[in-house]
């Protein structure tokens, strides 16, 4: 059983509070560039949140040469152990969705870890575009 982050783009109002919450939680600063979630604009007050899908067969996990990326038993999230990361950026290049980025301030690799099961982006989302729901992680296959 785990919390699932549900993304409902039709409710997104492009306020980018999720980016700020994420960067504040992980990097300690209100800097959207350092967040692990991105909202792309698709019209006036319409956004498209893009965040790690925690793929079943995660390319980042497969490509990491030092085993720094693994699936967390408790949250089912694909997480990066920063103490193990050697910053070769292979994950960043391999993610087919572009959901792993580099922190331009300190060079760290930024990857969503679902905040240990309580994603901050969902906590701060005012419009219900990002919500958490407890339940099993839905298994999805490629279309």
């Amino acid at each position: 059983m785990s919390n699932v982050l549900i993304v409902a783009p039709d409710r997104c109002i492009d306020c980018k509070k999720c980016e700020l919450a994420c960067s504040l939680h992980h990097a300690g600063s209100l800097d959207p560039d350092r967040g692990r979630i991105k909202v792309l604009n698709r019209g006036v007050e319409k956004g498209m949140p893009v965040v790690c899908l925690h793929c079943d067969e995660a390319a980042c996990l497969i490509v990491c040469p030092v085993g720094a990326i693994s699936r967390c038993d408790e949250t089912d999230a694909v997480v990066l152990d920063e103490t193990r990361c050697v910053r070769c950026k292979a994950c960043l290049a391999a993610c087919p969705f572009g959901n792993i980025t580099e922190d331009r301030v300190d060079g760290r690799v930024l990857k969503c870890d679902l905040c240990e099961g309580a994603p901050m982006c969902a906590v701060f989302c005012p419009s219900g575009a990002l919500v958490t729901r407890s339940g099993p992680r839905p298994l999805r296959s490629a279309p």
């Binding site: 699932v4 409902a8 965040v51 899908l53 925690h54 793929c55 079943d56 087919p96 839905p138 999805r140």
Partner: peptide
């Protein structure tokens, strides 16, 4: 949902 994605689902 996305191509091979799972986990946070887009509704």
């Amino acid at each position: 949902v996305g191509p091979t994605g799972s986990g946070p689902s887009h509704e």
